[in-house]
């Protein structure tokens, strides 16, 4: 049976303007891209727009990925997160200062629930990352959640949580450093590549 081409091989095909390669990459990554956009934007149409833009950008500018190196999946999720947060901030402007809020319901760490067609990398990783988040304190998880999924700045978090800015800064710093440390300790990168 023919071996499934790797992401790197598909990206090389994409550079040669092979649009079939994009179809395979879409099948492999669209679900995780869409799910992240949906989690941030809470709007299916907006999440589909972001997903479409992420894959069209990959098609138009594949060299932007190659220049940065590293596995494709997490890179796509970074691009997705930045686009979704940008959209969220822009669409939230009219509602501010009613936002930012820090509703407790947003602050849990969601369980990954991969479907049958999900590409294996994100399933394995979601479990590892979920476990790593479980090693953080509630306060550390909270600032990561607010910054990463809600797009709040440290100052906005301080206002929303009623905490001194310095406290929030310390939490953000220690939370992300600690998360990086745990993931490195657990050798998570070997699951990605």
């Amino acid at each position: 049976m023919a071996r499934e081409p790797s992401d790197q091989e598909l990206m090389a095909s994409l550079q040669r303007r092979d649009h079939q390669a994009l179809a395979l990459l879409y099948d492999r990554h669209a679900r995780s891209v869409y799910s992240l956009a949906l989690h941030i934007l809470r709007d299916r149409a907006a999440a589909e727009d972001v997903t479409q833009e992420v894959f069209l950008q990959l098609w138009r500018e594949p060299q932007r990925y190659l220049e940065e190196r590293g596995p494709l999946g997490p890179w796509l999720l970074r691009v997705t997160r930045n686009r979704a947060i940008d959209l969220l901030r822009r669409s939230s402007r009219e509602r501010w200062p009613a936002r930012p809020d820090a509703r407790g319901a947003d602050l849990h760490v969601p369980d990954p629930s991969p479907g049958p067609d999900e590409h294996v990398w994100s399933v394995a990783l979601a479990t590892r990352v979920h476990e790593a988040l479980g090693e953080l304190s509630d306060a550390q998880r909270q600032v990561i959640e607010l910054a990463y999924f809600r797009g709040l700045t440290q100052r906005e978090m301080a206002d929303a949580l009623g905490l001194p800015l310095g406290t929030v800064k310390t939490r953000v710093r220690t939370a992300l450093r600690r998360l990086a440390e745990i993931l490195t300790r657990d050798g998570v990168w070997s699951d990605v590549s």
Binding site: Y34, L77, S113
Partner: peptide, 16 residues
Amino acid sequence: DVLGLLGTVVPQEAPS
């Protein structure tokens, strides 16, 4: 890289 991984930890749902 860590922030890319963090994006996997959300409920998964397929687009249309």
